[in-house]
Simulated assay, not measured.
Amino acid sequence: MPRIAPAEAPYATAIAAELERIMPAGVEPLILFRTLARNPRIFARMFAGGLLDKGALSLRQREIVIDRTTARLGCEYEWGVHVAFFAQRAGLDAAQVAATVQGVAEAPCWTEEEQALIAAIDDLVDRHAIAPAVWTGLTTYFDETQILEVIALVGYYHTISFLCRALDLPLEGYAARFPEVPSAG
């Protein structure tokens, strides 16, 4: 069980409306969302800061950022939900999904543009900054608005990962699981 029990229906009017807006029809609201609903202020602020709308990045680029960030932070909960809901729509194949967890930025399954994107994500997660050489690679493919969105997404999903892991949320039944690491030997 999570450390804070998720809210149960009936929800407050504003929370119910937001859950209905963001969840696909017929899908139970995520445990994360229902847990955040225990604090309506945090719930409202987190959704006000959400970045799943049409932004400067393509759906594929956005999902690479989210999947790589949450995987690097060990947040199987959020990674698995995003893979389940968005990987196919974003055109991510099985090798690419696995590479968000286990691969290096230069993995051959990625385009050069995606490699630059992943290098920036890795720098932000590992160093909390972007090294000059990585920045140069990023600016080769992305403009200022896109780079700002990348940084904001990594930061936002850092927070989401902290919430999921600190709350010890159980994995959603339909969500993807991290791929097994091949054994050496």
Results as ranks from 00 to 15, higher is better:
Arg38Ser: 04
Leu169Met: 02
Pro132Arg: 13
Ala48Arg: 10
Ser161Ala: 13
Thr145Gly: 07
Leu32Gln: 07
His128Lys: 15
Glu114Ala: 05
Ala152Arg: 11
Glu113Trp: 03
Arg38Asn: 12
Ile15Glu: 04
Ile151Phe: 00
Ile151Asn: 05
Phe85Asn: 10
Glu144Gln: 08
Thr139Val: 14
Val150Phe: 01
Ile121Pro: 10
Leu163Tyr: 14
Pro179Thr: 14
Arg3Lys: 10
Pro24Thr: 06
Leu92Ala: 08
Met1Tyr: 07
Thr140Lys: 13
Lys54Leu: 04
Glu149Met: 06
Val101Phe: 11
Gly173His: 12
Ile118Lys: 13
Thr100Cys: 12
Glu106Asp: 15
Phe162Arg: 14
Leu148His: 13
Gly137Ser: 08
Trp110Pro: 03
Thr136Gln: 15
Met23Phe: 03
Ala25Val: 09
Phe85Gln: 11
Ile121Asn: 05
Ile147Gly: 01
Ala105Trp: 14
Leu51Pro: 00
Glu76Cys: 05
Asp143Met: 03
Val83Lys: 02
Arg72Asn: 10
Ala94Ile: 02
Thr70Glu: 08
Glu144Tyr: 08
Arg68Cys: 10
Gln115His: 02
Leu51His: 06
Arg72Trp: 08
Val27Tyr: 06
Glu76Ser: 09
Leu73Asn: 12
Ala25Ile: 03
Gln61Asn: 04
Glu180Val: 09
Gln102Gly: 15
His158Ser: 14
Tyr77Leu: 01
Phe43Ile: 01
Glu18Asn: 12
Glu144Asp: 13
Tyr174Thr: 10
His128Pro: 00
Thr100Arg: 08
Ala16Gln: 13
Trp135Ile: 00
Arg89His: 10
Ala175Thr: 02
Leu32Thr: 01
Ile118Ala: 05
Tyr77Trp: 14
Ala131Val: 00
Ala5His: 08
Ala12Tyr: 00
Ile151His: 02
Ala176Asp: 12
Leu124Ile: 14
Leu153Arg: 11
Ile22Met: 07
Ile160Glu: 03
Ala16Asp: 15
Phe85Arg: 14
Leu57Ile: 09
Val83Phe: 06
Gly155Asp: 10
Ala12Asn: 11
Ala166Glu: 11
Pro29Thr: 10
Ala107Ile: 02
Ala95Val: 14
Ala37Arg: 03
Gly103Lys: 14
Met23His: 15
Gly155Ala: 12
Ile31His: 06
Ile66Met: 01
Phe178Cys: 05
Ala107Val: 04
Ile22His: 02
Phe85Glu: 05
Arg72His: 08
Ala56Asp: 11
Phe178Arg: 07
Val104Ser: 13
Arg89Cys: 00
Ala44Arg: 15
Cys164His: 01
Ala107Pro: 09
Thr69Lys: 06
Ile42Trp: 09
Ile15Arg: 13
Val65Asn: 03
Glu180Ile: 06
Ala152Ser: 13
Arg127Cys: 07
Gln146Pro: 00
Val97Gln: 08
Val181Gly: 03
Pro179Cys: 13
Phe162Asn: 09
Gly50Asp: 11
Ala9Asn: 04
His128Asn: 12
Arg60Ser: 04
Leu138Val: 10
Tyr174Asp: 06
Cys109Asn: 04
Val150Ser: 08
Leu73Glu: 11
Arg3Gly: 01
Leu148Gly: 14
Leu124Gly: 06
Gly103Tyr: 07
Ile4Gly: 00
Thr145Cys: 04
Leu153Ser: 05
Pro179Asp: 13
Arg89Val: 00
Ala107Gln: 11
Gly155Met: 06
Ala131Met: 05
Ala99Leu: 06
Ala87Ser: 15
Val125Tyr: 03
